[in-house]
Amino acid sequence: MIIQQLVNGFSVGAVYALIAVGFGLVFNVLKFSNFSHGSTMGISAYIAYLFAMKFHLSIVPTVSIGTIAGGICAVLVELIAFRPLRKRGGQIVYFFVTSITMLMLLENILVIFFGDTFYAFPKMIASTAITVAGVSISTLYLVMLGCSVCALALLSYWLKYTKMGVAIRAASCAINTCNLMGANVDAVISWTFFVAGLMAGLSGSLLGISYTLYPQIGQIVVKGFIASVVGGLGNLTGAVVGAILLGILEVFFIATIGAGLTPAATFAIMVLFLFLRPQGVAGTIVRDKA
């Protein structure tokens, strides 16, 4: 029973980790909390749903379409909302306010086109649970875990060994210097949003498939926000650790004290944690002044 809960917590945490990493990537480069990440999740989940319904796709193409849709959507959001602001040299607070406005706007566009109702993806996986050594594990949770781990591994490889990955890391350090060294900052930022959007699309479609689809699905982005702040903003590994801790805690609390009080318990743990370790899991502090 405990092992089962742990696996479930790990799977939920892995999806939160995807969100947190996408959130953290943009934070690293532009130093603002990008809540529009959530709307990217929502829109890509709906696009995946549309394709899945229309062409009766199985799970792999559905999730792939969702992922790519997320990437494209995030790049468009950056082009429409953040690039003009950046060209005008706006303060960081305006990026933050723009991102929460985009979250509301895109959520509302989903409501306009799809209504305020719940949708369910068609059943995509035949067996609902498999039993390993007496522990019964939901197949969907395993899929979530597998996809997330693969995506995170690919991302970390990409950030470490490709030219664009190095450029993104350089831009996270000092975006102006990165510009002076000849990197095309516009391209770097577009790539950052694209990759963050891929993460958002993947997490959005996974969440849509395993739960239900509703316009407010993008608000799950706050889990990524919590995880990346607890992990130490600016540190992706810390964000992953924070997200998995959050997932396990949530599953544990839901099993013991029920879903209703879970937010209160999570809040208490979070404040305690910030009190004891204000620098976050990773222990590095990024100075910012939003």
Binding site: S33, V222, I226, L274, P278, D288, A290
Partner: peptide
């Protein structure tokens, strides 16, 4: 603490 922590704590 930093401002993000404040935003996060008020959210929580």
């Amino acid at each position: 603490l930093r401002q993000d922590y404040f935003a996060l704590s008020t959210f929580g």
